[in-house]
Nucleic acid binder design. Structure first.
Lengths: 147, 147
DNA sequence: CTCGATATTTCATGTTGTCAACTAAATGGT
DNA sequence: ACCATTTAGTTGACAACATGAAATATCGAG
């Protein structure tokens, strides 16, 4: 079964296809969970980034892999709903820190729990051992040093 | 990070988090590959759907999980570039079939190969056995009856 | 102090997405 | 055959997202 000269790609291609399917379902669930709080996917992602603590706009752009000018708009919308606030950085007067309000943090927490529900549907069929195996494989795939 | 009796399922949560990371990278690679052909992610996805053969608009909307009116716009843009054409269905005069042109199919093929490159970066660290294990786990997770 | 780099915003523009309203065509019951 | 109901696709209005260029303010090095 370990033939090295098997078609170079068939297996890999199938894994990629399956991952594509996972990506689709993940989005579906994520956007749906966000919509339950009248948030878009991007807003929910932003709120999740801000849950641990304040962060400069520039860093948020890097984490979301988008242009800083885009972050401005997303934070604007969250701010106008009272979920996020801006405040200047004490260290550098150029940077502004975005910070989740209490309500924003609560929303982020509930969102995270909703996403936990997501996990149960697709992961329901897996035993604990299988989940462990899956976790280890995903870790290795991502180059996680948690080995 | 505390050693407390973590609520229900610490393992599941970690798997979800890892999947989130995979989703992020998948998008990054996909959009980048699409951009190499001056396509957006949605346009590339549409082209991939049309590569096997023509399809009615309605079906495309279902596969992309979006409103039919959205499909109209995406196909419009692809059509204006000569990558896709519309043609009436012989069976039902209400339906229009979207079909990739020769150039569209070529682009789709090249895009697929680019995505194969994606596979190699994250999957490079996995042996054939591990990939097989991963494939089986993902299949089961998705409820695939391919057992 | 001046010069170049950095952080953020604003503006213009294009794509994606939803929803409601519309046309055209199929379908089903009487 | 007739009419009501569905169904497929488009259109128009509108919001969110995304990029790029230009503007402003600040930092940091020389």
């Amino acid at each position: 079964m370990t033939e090295r000269t098997t078609p170079p790609d068939r297996l890999t291609r199938e894994v990629v296809e399956l991952i594509g399917e996972i990506v689709g379902r993940y989005h579906q669930e994520y956007d749906q969970a966000a919509a339950a709080y009248s948030l878009t996917g991007a807003q929910a992602r932003m709120l999740a980034l801000l849950a641990p603590g304040p962060s400069p706009m520039r860093l948020l752009a890097e984490q979301l892999k988008c242009e800083p000018s885009n972050v401005t708009g997303i934070v604007d919308r969250l701010e106008s709903r009272g979920l996020v606030e801006r405040r200047p950085s004490p260290d550098d007067r150029r940077v502004k820190l975005a910070e989740a309000t209490d309500e924003g943090r609560q929303t982020a927490t509930r969102l995270r729990e909703s996403l936990g529900d997501f996990a149960q549907t697709p992961l329901a069929g897996l035993t604990t051992e299988e989940r462990t195996a899956l976790r280890d494989l995903l870790r290795r795939m991502l180059g996680d040093p948690t080995d």
